[in-house]
Design a binder for these strands. Structure first.
Lengths: 351, 351
DNA sequence: ATCTGTGGTCGAACCGGTTCGCGTGAAGTG
DNA sequence: CACTTCACGCGAACCGGTTCGACCACAGAT
């Protein structure tokens, strides 16, 4: 079931079969049909490894998606799905690598062993050794996210600074004066995750601009952490009336914490942030948030990578997205509820 | 940067380098060190395609994960993550294929072009043409899920029948007499998805056994559908006091519907089902449910596949899991709330 | 001193494709 | 009619590994 077998049965040489298939040289209609019949009959498909070896391309792209903390987030799922489908449209397959760093065996395999033609990286850090490495060896790649110095790179990113600022302005416009920021886990912040840093920056600057009183928190990527975080927020400043979050996995926990503290959303407390729409719509009341356009980003990343692969030497391109805030039901003007919380609500307990 | 270059610089033949690397024939300590030095110096890594071509194994497994309906579910994410990590531990890479059927280009590439040594399939149907095809050509694969006739196959599955029944018994024990079943989308049921069918079976039989009054519903995989579904449930039978669901993506919508209808969970209405713990813990109150052990299932699937690859001819094995129900906060004895809902609650409206 | 065994190495063949150079015969051109 | 042009097909080399058979040197056995 290899090309030699086909050639033999069709009574031609191996090269003729190859040319009949690729069309890179003319082949008479007669022999082409003869070959095609044999191929259909035997159900022949050329071996991918042999082809890759011969022409130096694997027709595979690598998707590097390190676990964020200990588990994977919903946003990662959206990226994986959209990247895979976009790649399939270009007849590329996608190879997964859970690598967090440059030195991971899996990362080394991708590059060193030339398993993939190019790579898409997720969970970018402001200083990212993987991207540095890739740039140093001039390996075609596209980042979903951007480093501290994205100039001259290929990436598709979200303007977390602007998005977080927009959330602040939205709350400030509604009259909120004391708001909290719920970030990704501390370990990710320390590791330099760009969304965590840029989001925090945007929040802090916009809050200063509007003269707001703020507190910022790190929060684990799960509901229990969200609950605990909300309890800390209300403990630290019971007069807080709103929060902004980047942490979609904690969202359910934040809501639960508010419910347990007797704060009704949005009457007593407004919640907003930067979250994929599927999560924003899951909670009750639905979250007013900047929707992360994950499918679009995945598709754009593949488009960029394919362009880079097809036209080596093209100057670098990128896309910086800043989706608008979708008004749903979790924010409301401040002060419609009690301005000062009842004294016994300061440190809520739970079962 | 190929093996010939290494050989030249080390002053030996290509075959000697190969043997030094693989250890399949003795190589003197001297030459081995000489070779190793050159390799370290040049950072040489053998080309994966060439190696795959020569020894007929790609060291890659395929993960076939069709979109469920139009998008991907959280459970799929958990599988993808755990499969990828388990595979990495065996030094296997994972190739993604979003194929729904046998004839997809991406599926054909995986098999016909021999891109992978084996495959793991998700979203199994009771009659699954992909599995039939794989069995026919004796291609090593493991299913996450089981068909109508799983005998003699390799799979790791969840006992949806028993799990759904356990939910029913749990509710019946609490005194609920009128309960609803919220299934996956109708299109998936029609397509023969095993979880949807076996879950429905288990629910129906157990309900009959306990003499309960039931209604069953299909529901889209998103919050809006969940809300709509709950409205239908209360419209069709306002006396319903509990529901069982397999649909984790609809969960948020179901809760929202209950809230809008003025039914307090769990006082007026109990909710349970078969749902991954990360989702069960996100909603408020947390869901009492049979937790889908997705990470464990992914790991087991990889274990089975690797065993099958390493020892061809081993008799088929499988794992059928039936995790217990985790008691959380969404179920309570029936009848503690109003037995008959207030008349104006029959057909709730929403903004 | 010859035979046998074995550690160590090499050259060549092979995996299954692609591609280059060349040869052929027929058609087109002056 | 000689001369180019081009469609068509073949054989051989190549991609970068692995593996088989053979060879040599030196050890221990007889």
């Amino acid at each position: 079931m290899n090309i030699g077998e086909i050639a033999k049965r069709a009574g031609v040489s191996r090269s003729t079969v190859s040319y009949a298939l690729s069309g890179k040289r003319p082949v008479s209609e007669d022999t082409r049909q003869k070959i095609q019949r044999v191929i259909d009959e035997l159900g022949y498909q050329p071996n991918a490894s042999a082809r890759a070896l011969a022409n130096g391309r694997t027709n595979t792209i690598g998707l590097v998606f390190p676990p964020a903390g200990n588990h994977y987030t919903g946003m990662q799922l959206d990226f994986i799905g959209s990247v895979t489908e976009a790649a399939a449209a270009y007849d590329y397959d996608v190879l997964l690598s859970p690598s967090g760093v440059d030195s991971d065996r899996s990362f080394q395999r991708l590059l060193g062993e030339r398993r993939v033609d190019g790579a898409i990286l997720m969970e970018i850090r402001l200083q990212d050794d993987r991207l540095d490495h890739l740039a140093a060896v001039d390996f075609p790649s596209v980042a979903i996210g951007r480093t501290a110095h994205p100039e001259g790179g290929w990436w598709v990113g979200l303007d977390h600074t602007a998005l977080a600022a927009a959330c602040v302005h939205h709350l400030a416009d509604l009259g909120h004066r004391r708001i909290a920021f719920v970030n990704r886990p501390e370990q990710l912040l320390r590791a330099g995750y760009e969304s965590a840093h840029r989001g925090l920056d945007g929040f802090t600057k916009a809050a200063a601009e509007r003269g707001l009183t703020v507190r910022t928190y790190c929060c684990g990527d799960d509901a229990a952490s969200g609950l605990a975080c909300l309890e800390r927020i209300l403990h630290d400043d019971p007069a807080t009336t709103a929060l902004v979050t980047l942490n979609e996995a904690a969202l359910g926990g934040l809501y639960r914490g508010l419910a347990q503290a007797g704060r009704h959303v949005p009457r007593d407390f407004s919640v907003t942030g930067v979250v994929a729409s599927r999560w924003a719509e899951t909670v009750t009341p639905q979250l007013t948030a900047a929707d992360v356009p994950a499918e679009q980003m995945g598709r754009l990343a593949v488009d960029l990578l394919v362009e880079r692969l097809d036209h080596p030497g093209t100057p670098a391109r990128h896309h910086l997205l800043a989706p608008p805030i979708s008004l749903r039901a979790s924010t409301a003007p401040a002060g419609t509820g009690p301005a000062d919380p009842a004294p016994d609500l300061g440190a809520p307990t739970h079962p």
